[in-house]
């Protein structure tokens, strides 16, 4: 039996898409500033890059508050539960048409591989790129009294930009690996995902945990 569950709240949807737009904008302009290609023009690219950075900081303030207030930060606590099963699925089962060993729920929205990936993105790549970016942006305010060497700052900034691009490519690909190519994308847009529930699911996958779901799809917090 298939059931539609609310996986992402309107805030998460808005957060995800504004963040992705800003990150893609910063990657595009950042690599122009880096000299990888020429497009907008350096001054224009710099303006867009910094505008996106300032906007992303605002988005992040809201996002961090939301994660703390709702307890949703727990979604990124790493786990090894089913991790090997998921890895085995992407390495082999997916080609044989096997069902995904993980079934998303409100309580566990992300499979263990996603948890690791998003944790690294949120806790390592993002902080590294925006801390170095902030040093870059404000260097002229303190550079005379506290001469930070720019080379290592820039190197970390560029390295994390490459890491972000790698993440983005992997992330965009992984969302095509649902039951249909656009299943996950659709969930991220409308917030609902259809999952198999109840005993003996028809596709042989694991039964999904729907007990924590409210029929109205509202988000339950604090557990």
């Amino acid at each position: 039996m298939r059931q539609r569950i609310r996986l992402f709240s309107p805030f998460e949807i808005a957060w995800h898409w504004s963040q992705s737009l800003l990150i893609i904008g910063m990657l595009t302009t950042g690599f122009e500033l880096h000299g990888t290609y020429r497009g907008l023009g350096y001054a224009e690219a710099a303006t867009v890059h910094v505008t996106c950075a300032l906007a992303l900081m605002v988005v992040w303030v809201f996002a961090i508050f939301w994660h703390v207030a709702t307890g949703e930060w727990r979604q990124y606590v790493p786990t090894t539960d089913k991790l090997w099963a998921v890895l085995r699925f992407y390495a082999g089962g997916i080609f044989r048409g096997e069902p995904h060993p993980f079934c998303p729920s409100r309580r566990r929205k992300h499979n263990p591989l996603q948890r690791f990936a998003y944790l690294i993105f949120n806790a390592v790549i993002s902080p590294a790129i925006w801390i170095t970016g902030l040093i870059y942006l404000t260097f002229n305010l303190f550079g005379d009294v506290l001469p930070v060497p720019l080379a290592p700052v820039a190197t970390v900034h560029i390295a994390t930009a490459y890491a972000t691009l790698v993440f983005l490519i992997g992330h965009v690909y992984m969302i095509t690996t649902g039951d249909t190519v656009f299943q996950h994308l659709k969930a991220m847009i409308i917030g609902y995902e259809a999952v198999e529930t109840g005993p003996g699911p028809s596709n042989g996958g694991p039964p999904c945990d729907t007990e924590s779901e409210r029929p109205d799809g509202r988000i339950r917090t604090g557990r």
């Binding site: 500033l33 880096h34 060497p149 560029i158 890491a163 691009l165």
Partner: peptide
Amino acid sequence: YMPGRDAPAWLDRIGGLAVLAT
């Protein structure tokens, strides 16, 4: 150090390789 001019070449080699590999 000047942005756009001075990034180490190894950084682009490794970064580019990682992107291509992905």
